[in-house]
Amino acid sequence: MNILIVFVVVLGVTWAIGRSVERAHFRRLEADERELAERIAVSDLKRLPANWHAAGATLVTGEVVIATDYFKVFAAVLRKLIGGRLRSYETLVARARREAVVRMMRQAERAGANVVWNARVETSTIQGRQQRQSGGIEVLAYGTAMRAE
């Protein structure tokens, strides 16, 4: 009985903290994306439009690793019983991918570029201490930054 109470309390606390961390992260991402979108255009197209003139091409990258939390893992375990959308993990990968792209854009900005072309996003998981359990998600975003007119 005691163990059950401890378990529920831990779950509740991780849910509350995890959610506030996630919400703060999404708010920051939205602000960053809005700010950067004014100065840097990102595209996954391979070729530049024919009438553009570009210079100063260089590779830029952005990387991030974000951990799962106990609540997300627990929610996913329950979800797997009946199947369907794992919303707790959807938001996790969304956060990581958007953060990596934002970091890539920042690097492009420091390089004096205004576009990032041929952007690619690579994702992989980091194994947790328990077997088969995901400890986190690792995202690497990269592309070619250049100054285009």
Partner: peptide
């Protein structure tokens, strides 16, 4: 990292490793 796994959030050590 195992502490971070309780509440979630960025694993800065791992991000550095990736860089």
């Amino acid at each position: 990292a195992s502490f971070k796994n309780i509440f979630g959030g960025e694993l800065r050590g791992y991000t550095e490793l990736l860089v």
